[in-house]
Design a protein around this nucleic acid. Structure first.
Length: 978
RNA sequence: GGGCGGUUGGCUCAGGGGUAGAGCGCUUCCUUGACACGGAAGAGGUCACAGGUUCAAAUCCUGUACCGCCCACCA
């Protein structure tokens, strides 16, 4: 006996219960030793400090939808979750927490701080993983990893975020050091002094990819640098006047005749009274600004390059320090913030009459993508990774299509980037992260010394010792006064190793053997370079092959008016709010229905205050239409299910098991055995759909099968086929809408309605047949829908009779195409019923008899299922044309005459018929112009011509019928005899 | 400066060589034992603009405009 479904679907009650059931049955764990073919994904690890936002919700809806179908299709599905230690973000959070205690990281010292940060991530981090469970994600939580985790042998959960013990034989932290040492030994890592992107707020270097350029309107200041001989010299144009204090020269284009006489001479740098040379360099664009560029090698990458070509511009003069404050080299401006210095410098120059002019100017200013602070280009000695070898092999991998991108256009984006790859600055001046495993010998390395402040001064030519562990002694002098490099690695260096380190690299684990390479990487386009490209490079180097076979790039979630969702701007929604309002299923289904391959998704929101964006921190989400629609869908499905279950009338026990009623897509295991045998033979693994089709389904034999039954079975077969087809193309939106319309428009609106009278039949066999079909279609629908709406489908499924006890829907087989259910004749017949029914309803509505039962005469081809029409249109079908006045319509090959018995407004009926005739005439004209065109008949596809002819015949028929009706009306002056 | 997307009914979006679809909103009607988070019937669009290819273009090509995104050292 199935438990009766509650009156209304209550996501808040159902979701935790069902998720608990899945966990209890261990549905999401993927053992390495499993004969079934593997399907694996590693999720893009969210920041350990992060909380679920709409982008995550979309991303993981896509993940779980794909995973659940694969699981139901019989794969050994692994989705490996985890979090990223997120160096900068986490360090910022922890420092924030410390500030509240009146402490800074310096008070704790490095060891104390990292300990504190680790505690912090254990305590507060990883809440996002719990939030993913609320979304329903079917990930293997027992394998949860963290990009800075240490090896844990055995034992209880290490922390809430871990949701399980560390699984493999190596800690992530150690593996990262291994990888770096390998890089070093390959000669790809070097130390170099260059202009880097310095964040004065975070006090660290960041890579080019972490700099976000924003166009700001500013000014172009033209400054006069007088000649040393008192002549007028020249004017330079700059967007950063404060850096002039560090100028070491001026550059002009060699062919710029205005300045040829000055090249090789000196000009006087105002305010600091320094003589600086004028040089000729091709980099300078004579048509921009004044044609003369001030050269500040310490604060501008271009200027640094120019200075490399002109030794007289060296050495550089640093006038801005790590905090964005002017250095003693800035003379009277020392100690001022860079913004203040700018104002004072401009004012001083103006006072001296050296400010030639100020133009409005728009230019791109680099901001740190984590904190938004304006990046300060500074000259620094940093660790760089030369990626050209890696990029070349990654390019080869992509070009050989060992990694493919969906949508395809992203392939080009990725290869373009790889082709022009530049050295990657991998060192960061942080404490939270993987400390660079390079050691310096204070005894024998002359380039290394302790400063008075106790820190390490490391010269450019220092000779570090690479080692994962602290070396016991210096291999050169056997001294044991070794110091580790103070910097940590870019977080992206560790995440580049994610797909294989999470599976145990550098050990050779069973997990790697089974699940690497992974099948899919599902990610946003914003990290295609930062992460995806680097994983391909790292995978190729460390594993000898690509880390994933496919990259699925999904859209960005935007607000309704196209702005990026942002917490601080109040333009974002918390997905948990959506789950609270509408349930996880509706949230997922709403999101999946929005997936297309275009670039972004606009999300409509209405807040309690009435606006499109939150008016304040307390403003709550009132409505999200796109999700609400799917909540309504869930309610619909729930009610269909209630209807089916409440009509079993206690006969559940006598119903045959579902597997007999409806093909259950054959035994999955048989399939796997076949596939593994193929694998052993070295054969290409057959497409599962093909295998599925090759296995004969148990025939669907119910003697009392009626037209409606044959129709709905044919339709669910078609729906399954098209959902599968769309999912194979990652057209998740299309798949969602197909499911939506099948359930609502076909199953609920027509089949359930047509089933009602038969359920009330006196014949038990008739009743039984309908119940069985209802149940079979419902059960198949639930399997089809499960990846989209896992909670509600599982909850209903658990209440169905005829299933095996103890099973979960999550591990049932996924419906295939069901081509054997296709029934052309049934579809055509029922379509006729639907069309005629609609025409009658329309007529009833027009004559104001929508709610009444009417008499109707239908002329046309035989075989129309009149009982269905009578039921659906609420009418009585007459054997003969009615005597009295009628209202008429023509649909397809059928003519419909509705006895109006004086109901009809003559003028209105004439107007209606005239309007309909006009429409027919218009359509006919269009068709005729085509058919009369010899070119069309001669050149168009034969079936296009045939179709047009058929349409024309039908329209001619309709025109005749309608014309006759109209004539009858006008001739009798309104009596309208039939 | 390059590159990529988008421009379809009031709104948010599907679709994609044969004459336009959905949801919401709107109009009219209906509380019928699955469902008013529902049912029935409607109104509403020269598919941004201009050329071209084709028997046929909203759909393919080229160009233009506007919106968005990515990349790029023009001070």
């Amino acid at each position: 006996m199935p438990e009766e479904l509650a009156k209304t679907f209550d996501p808040a009650e159902v979701e935790p219960r069902i998720y608990g059931l899945w966990k209890e049955r261990d549905c999401f764990h993927a053992p390495a030793a499993d004969p079934r073919p593997a399907f694996s994904i590693t999720i893009p690890p969210p920041n350990v400090t992060g909380e679920l936002h709409m982008g995550h919700a979309l991303q993981h809806t896509i993940h779980d939808l794909i995973l659940r179908r694969k699981r139901m299709q019989g794969f050994n599905v692994l989705c490996l979750p985890g979090t990223d230690h997120a160096g900068i973000a986490t360090q910022m959070k922890v420092e924030q927490a410390l500030r509240k205690e009146g402490l800074s990281r310096w008070d704790l010292g490095r060891a104390g701080f990292t300990e504190r940060a680790r505690e912090w991530t254990l305590q507060y981090g990883g809440t996002i993983l719990g939030q993913l469970q609320a979304l329903g994600c079917s990930y293997d939580w027992s394998r949860t990893r963290f990009t800075l985790d240490e090896f844990v042998e055995e034992g209880p959960e290490t922390a809430d975020w871990a949701l399980g013990r560390i699984y493999e034989q190596s800690g992530y932290a150690r593996a990262v050091l291994h990888a770096f040492v390998h890089f070093y030994e390959r000669g790809w890592v070097y130390r170099g002094e260059r202009i880097v992107n310095w964040c004065p707020q975070c006090q660290t270097v960041v890579s080019d990819l972490e700099v976000e350029h924003r166009d700001l309107s500013s000014h172009l200041w033209h400054l006069r640098y007088p000649g040393t001989d008192g002549s007028e010299g020249l004017a330079v144009a700059t967007t950063r006047p404060e850096t002039m204090l560090g100028d070491t020269g001026v550059a002009v284009n060699p062919s710029d005749l205005r300045y040829t006489n000055l090249v090789g001479k000196n000009v006087r740098l105002p305010l600091v009274n320094r003589e600086i040379p004028v040089v000729a360099d091709h980099h300078v664009d004579a048509s921009f600004g004044s044609g003369a560029v001030k050269v500040t090698p310490a604060h501008d990458p271009n200027d640094w390059d120019i200075a490399q070509r002109h030794p007289e511009l060296m050495p550089p003069i640093t006038v801005i320090d790590d905090a964005g404050v002017m250095t003693p080299q800035a003379g009277p401006y020392a100690g001022l913030k860079r913004e203040e210095a700018r104002k004072k410098v401009v004012a001083a120059l103006q006072e001296q009459g050296l400010l030639v002019k100020v133009e409005e100017h728009q230019h791109a200013v680099g901001h740190h993508d984590k904190c938004g602070t304006v990046i300060e280009p500074l000259l620094k000695l940093q660790w760089w990774a030369n990626c050209s070898d890696l990029a070349a092999s990654a390019l080869a991998t992509i070009r050989a299509r060992k990694v493919t991108y969906t949508p395809e256009r992203f392939t080009q984006m990725e290869t373009d980037w790889l082709e022009s790859i530049r050295p990657w600055c991998v060192s960061r001046q942080l404490w939270w992260g993987h400390r660079i495993p390079l050691w310096y010998c204070l005894a024998c390395d002359g380039e290394v010394a302790r400063t008075s402040a106790g820190s390490l001064a490391i010269g450019e030519k220092a000779q570090p010792i690479p080692s994962v562990e602290r070396p016991a002694a210096c291999p050169r002098c056997a001294g044991n006064e070794l110091e580790q490099d103070p910097d940590v690695l870019d977080t992206w260096f560790s995440s580049a190793l994610w797909p294989f380190v999470t599976m145990g690299w550098p050990e050779r684990t069973d997990t790697l053997a089974t699940f690497y390479p992974t099948d899919l990487m599902i990610t946003g386009r914003d990290i295609l370079y930062l992460w995806v490209a680097r994983m391909i490079m790292a995978g190729g180097e460390f594993m000898g092959r690509e880390p994933f076979r496919e990259v699925l790039v999904h859209a960005t979630v935007m607000t309704e008016d196209g702005r990026r969702m942002s917490k601080s701007l109040g333009t974002g929604v918390d997905p948990l709010e959506l789950i609270r309002l509408y349930g996880a299923d509706a949230t997922r289904f709403g999101l999946s229905s929005l997936v297309t391959d275009s670039q972004d998704i606009r999300f409509k929101m209405i807040w309690e205050s009435g606006g499109k964006a939150a008016s304040g921190p307390d403003d709550r989400l009132a409505r999200a239409e796109q999700i609400e629609q799917m909540r309504n869908f869930c309610t619909k499905l729930w009610n269909i299910s209630r209807f089916v279950l409440m009509n079993l009338e206690g006969e559940e026990g006598t119903l045959r098991p579902l597997s007999e009623l409806m093909p259950r897509d054959a035994c999955p295991l048989a399939k796997f055995e076949q596939q593994t045998a193929d694998l052993a033979e070295g054969a290409i693994v057959a497409d599962t759909a093909t295998l599925e089709d090759a296995i004969p389904h148990s025939a669907f034999r119910i003697p009392q099968l009626k037209l409606a039954d044959r129709w709905i079975l044919s339709r669910i077969g078609a729906a399954s086929a098209s959902v599968n087809d769309a999912l194979d193309r990652y057209a998740l939106g299309e798949a969602s809408w197909t499911l939506y319309h099948f359930v609502w428009d076909e199953f609920a609106d027509w089949y359930v309605e047509l089933a009602k009278p038969r359920l009330r039949s006196d014949d038990p066999e008739t009743r039984r047949a309908v119940r069985e079909v209802l149940l079979a279609v419902l059960e198949t629908t639930l399997r089809l829908a499960h990846p989209f709406i896992p909670f509600i489908s599982e909850a209903i499924w658990q209440g169905l009779p005829g299933r095996t006890e103890g099973e979960t829907l999550a591990t049932q087989s996924y419906p295939g195409g069901h081509a054997e259910l296709h029934d052309e004749a049934a579809e055509a017949s029922l379509n006729a019923v639907i069309e005629v029914t609609r025409a009658i309803r329309n007529l009833k509505s027009e004559v104001g008899a929508a709610t009444k039962s009417v008499d109707v005469f239908i002329a046309g081809p035989a075989g129309l299922e009149m009982a269905y029409v009578e039921q659906s249109a609420r009418c009585r079908v007459l054997d003969q044309r009615p005597e009295g006045p009628v209202s008429a319509a023509a649909v397809g090959a059928y003519e419909i005459a509705l006895a109006t018995a004086g109901l009809v407004d003559v003028a209105a009926e004439i107007a209606r018929l005239t309007k309909e005739l006009e429409k027919v005439a218009k359509d006919l004209a269009g068709l005729d112009s085509r058919l009369n065109n010899e070119q069309f008949v001669a050149r168009a596809a034969p079936d296009a011509v045939a179709k047009a002819r058929a349409q024309r015949d039908e329209l001619l028929q309709r025109r005749a019928t309608l014309g006759e009706r109209l004539r009858a009306f006008t001739a009798t002056g309104g009596a309208g005899q039939a």
